[in-house]
Design a protein around this nucleic acid. Structure first.
Lengths: 138, 138
DNA sequence: TTTTTTGCAAAAGGTTTGCAACACG
DNA sequence: CGTGTTGCAAACCTTTTGCAAAAAA
């Protein structure tokens, strides 16, 4: 992602605030799905309230800058939408690995063509769950 | 799913109890993802405690009879694992439709072959998010 | 009888809301 | 200046836990 977070926010028609810039920067430097609490810890010296982080995550998601990732953990994880990829998650220890190969757009088109109810399909989630090498030894 | 829920439970090496049978029956009759609260409402005349429902969902999932479905709603939804399918979810009204076409096993094999960290991949989630025809009019 | 399951009450964890002060544009 | 954003405290909702009674095998 472009490092000019103020510009990114302007393009998304959001006001430029310190909290939003700091949160975008966190996503940009940590290339992995993260949750509100993690951001709060990482930015705690800057003093942003956890509530602000929740609200920011919501508005960044609504604007399309972030997307949710379902890791089957207790809380909601998000990632930048800037490059399309998916995850393999270890059901033992929670470790994740990402991959890019994805034929889901083809699947989506096929589903949409046959669907009696749906008009458009915009997003998808695809996560694989398995066991990592170190957990399969234990 | 076989209507002999006692047998299903025995095969899964779980004790046969009224709560487990009733919950399996609910899943069997409602062919859609449901959550703990929904089951509680549906079985409220039988008086099962909500805590029991949560614990039962956990044990049925652990035994492989149920799987989680991520609908991006506030609570955890489950479905029978008896036949493989996925969902399209309307981001406007939450309506879901299911589809069976799924090439994810191929994707999984490819990912596993290239993965430095993972030993096995057992499950996957794949959900499509879009807008249904009635929501796209409004 | 032994072990697992259930109910109840209470706690925990994540997330949302109301409201007043503040900051962006 | 007006509207959107933030912080604080409190509420909310879903899910989990401890313990004793009840039920399954």
């Amino acid at each position: 992602m472009n490092k000019d977070f103020a510009l990114t926010l302007k393009k998304a028609k959001l006001k430029v605030t310190p909290a939003r810039q700091a949160i975008l920067e966190t996503f940009s430097s940590d290339c992995k799905p993260i949750n509100a609490e993690y951001i709060h810890q990482k930015l705690k010296d800057k003093g942003f309230n956890l509530v602000t982080i929740y609200r920011t995550l919501t508005s960044l998601e609504t604007s399309g800058l972030l997307k949710r990732v379902d890791l089957r953990k207790g809380s909601t994880y998000y990632e930048l939408t800037d490059h399309h990829h998916h995850h393999v998650i270890c059901t033992g220890c929670g470790k994740t690995e990402s991959f890019e190969m994805c034929d889901v757009d083809k699947i989506s088109k096929g589903v949409l063509r046959k669907s009696p109810l749906f008009e458009t399909i915009g997003q998808h989630s695809l996560e694989l769950f398995g066991t990592c090498k170190s957990c399969s030894k234990g």
